[in-house]
Design a protein around this nucleic acid. Sequence first.
DNA 1: TTTTATTGTCTAAAAAGTAGACAATAAAAT
DNA 2: ATTTTATTGTCTACTTTTTAGACAATAAAA
Lengths: 235, 235
Amino acid sequence: MIQFNPQDFIPQLSIDSVIFGYKQKKLHVLISELDFGKHVYTLPGGFIKQNQSIDEAALTILNERTGVKDIFLEQFKVFGSSDRKNYEISEIFSTINSSEIAKSLAINKVWLSQRFISIGYYALVDINSSQANPKSWFPIDKLPELIMDHKEIVTEALIALRRNLDEKLIGFNLLPETFTMRNLQELYEAVYEKPFARNNFQKKMLSLGVLERLEKQYTGAANKAPYLYRFKTEK
Amino acid sequence: MIQFNPQDFIPQLSIDSVIFGYKQKKLHVLISELDFGKHVYTLPGGFIKQNQSIDEAALTILNERTGVKDIFLEQFKVFGSSDRKNYEISEIFSTINSSEIAKSLAINKVWLSQRFISIGYYALVDINSSQANPKSWFPIDKLPELIMDHKEIVTEALIALRRNLDEKLIGFNLLPETFTMRNLQELYEAVYEKPFARNNFQKKMLSLGVLERLEKQYTGAANKAPYLYRFKTEK
DNA sequence: TTTTATTGTCTAAAAAGTAGACAATAAAAT
DNA sequence: ATTTTATTGTCTACTTTTTAGACAATAAAA
């Protein structure tokens, strides 16, 4: 594991990422829990190396936390109020998860306690193919108390997700490789927090021409087996 | 005029703003021209004071350049590629328009030649109520060669504008206080670069319930006089 | 008084979205 | 083997929205 060295990073600028996952028919968010005396909850975040683009920096964070690469990731808003400081010096702990390194953090306390402007990213991952601790996934309506403005960042991320789910057809990133139409509908219902009519939802999705119909899924349930679908990459 | 003092600002972070205006039935963008030896064209930009929010900083830039305050302004994207440096040290000149201060710039050359991450803002102003030099307004399809990635920033700003024009009903910011339905339609046609059907455009706009119909506008033209409209603030 | 260029709005047609209905089916219950 | 139950896939009708065509009203010039 590497040493945290302030001069390798861009000062006063951070990245906070809202990593969305989907399980138990609910939208979840990946939260870092830090235990130093009291428990503190934060969004996964980090800093930008001098030789790294902001997208690469965000990808690095995502990769560290979930083990997933090659996933949907997009900046959505910058949080830059003038009083945006971490009075608890806690945000930084969320970016480095080794107690060994914690010692050197004291040295960097000054660096870290400056005002920070943060670029918000949101990511969509399939929880099943993620290596994050399952306990780190919190239902979006049952988040713990988050530090600083992280709650607001989640709220804004959800707005961005809703705006893009339909338009950019990114929902598939939250599901496993194959899924039923019902799975997809329940995902939409979780994101928009409202029900969709089954018949019309199916018609709409099929009309988009982005779903490939596969074999049927026999689960043993006493009813007609649904088709599995896969998101068409390209031809 | 104030002295530029690097330690008052957040390092390696800038703001570039795409200030849109509308005249002669075309969308225009405000461009700064810098003459040091050869002519260089840039977007109006600046830096963020340590005690300023990013929105305040963007507003300051807008105000300096156009004299307009209380106008629509919104961040739309961060530009953060790892090689984003100003090899010509020219971007900075666009942020300070006094040759007197230019001397002190040499001292800050190191500060300014670092890699910069830039927050893109776009603004909508009524050109008629702006104090900017009319020659600084360029039609968006006839922009001069811009430094760095400023051309790309304009392209992204236009995408953001198109996405929001309908949804947030912000187009009125580009027009004078009162305008005819034809004015409004031509604005939309300029932004989207496509024609709209006159009858249906009018029906649609009126159905939104945000326009207040005023008296007729008699211009002396040999035809039926159109109504003037005003954007309803609130009641 | 007639002509011309535009404006405001009406109606019909097409497209998209919504709601109700029902046959098909996988497996459990009889 | 037959019936029952829960769900799925799709069809049709209805409603709303969007698009296209038409035309009377009008301001000022001819």
